[in-house]
Simulated assay, not measured.
Amino acid sequence: MSDALAYDVFAKTCPSRGTLEHVTGRWGGLILGALHEGTFRFNELRRRVDGVSEKMLSQTLHALERDGLVHRDAQPTNPPRVDYRLTPLGHEVAGQLLGLIRLVEGRMDRVLAAREAYDAEHEPVTGRTA
């Protein structure tokens, strides 16, 4: 399948679906966005992506590395030093993702207003008897 159009993320067996899940999952997008800023060591990245556990960071980095989006550079020093950076493909994906992130951040006033209106309209009525 050399033609990019030969892949269909809407087909359950398409391999692009797994990569999309890695990129858009809870932590994948945040990790890619952080790595777009530059090279990070593991703990630096963990601090940058506030709230991610060590286990989830490790699993997500592994998946993104496997997909060819992140490069892991282990240096034979004592103690060992491991740096993570985006590959050229990772930069492309992260750039697109950052556009979406900036769009969402820039519209949060509207989102919060919509949530407030929704919650007011759907507020549970208390004290009512059946």
Rank of each mutant, 00 (worst) to 15 (best):
E54Y: 03
R41A: 15
T13S: 15
V111P: 00
A130W: 13
R85I: 02
L97W: 09
E54W: 02
T60A: 01
A117S: 12
G51Y: 06
R46T: 12
G51W: 01
R102F: 07
V93H: 08
E44N: 06
G51T: 03
D83R: 14
G28Y: 01
L112H: 10
H62V: 07
V125L: 10
R47K: 12
L89V: 11
H62N: 12
I101H: 13
Y118G: 02
H22D: 11
S53G: 15
K12W: 09
Y84R: 11
G106P: 02
Y84H: 15
T39H: 03
P79V: 02
L112K: 09
V104N: 04
P80M: 10
D67S: 15
L30C: 05
P15M: 00
P88C: 03
D73G: 00
A114T: 09
M1T: 08
M108F: 11
T126M: 12
L61S: 01
A114G: 12
G38Q: 04
G106S: 09
T126A: 12
F42R: 09
V125M: 09
H122E: 07
Y118Q: 06
T39S: 14
V49N: 02
R66H: 07
P15W: 03
G18C: 05
G90V: 05
R17E: 13
Q75E: 13
R46Q: 15
V9P: 07
S58R: 14
H122V: 03
A34H: 03
T126H: 11
R115H: 11
R81A: 14
L20S: 07
P80R: 13
F10E: 09
W27F: 12
Q96T: 09
G95R: 03
K55F: 07
A114R: 10
R46H: 11
E37I: 00
V93L: 10
A74S: 15
E123K: 06
A130T: 06
T77I: 04
E44S: 09
R81V: 14
D67T: 05
S53L: 01
R41G: 15
L64E: 03
S58Q: 13
H62C: 02
S53E: 03
R115E: 07
G38F: 00
R47L: 12
N78G: 04
P79K: 08
E105W: 05
R46K: 09
I31L: 12
L30P: 01
G51F: 01
E105C: 04
R128T: 07
R115M: 15
L100H: 04
T24L: 15
H71F: 15
D8P: 02
D50T: 10
S16L: 11
D83C: 08
D3Q: 06
G68M: 06
L112S: 08
P76I: 02
R72M: 13
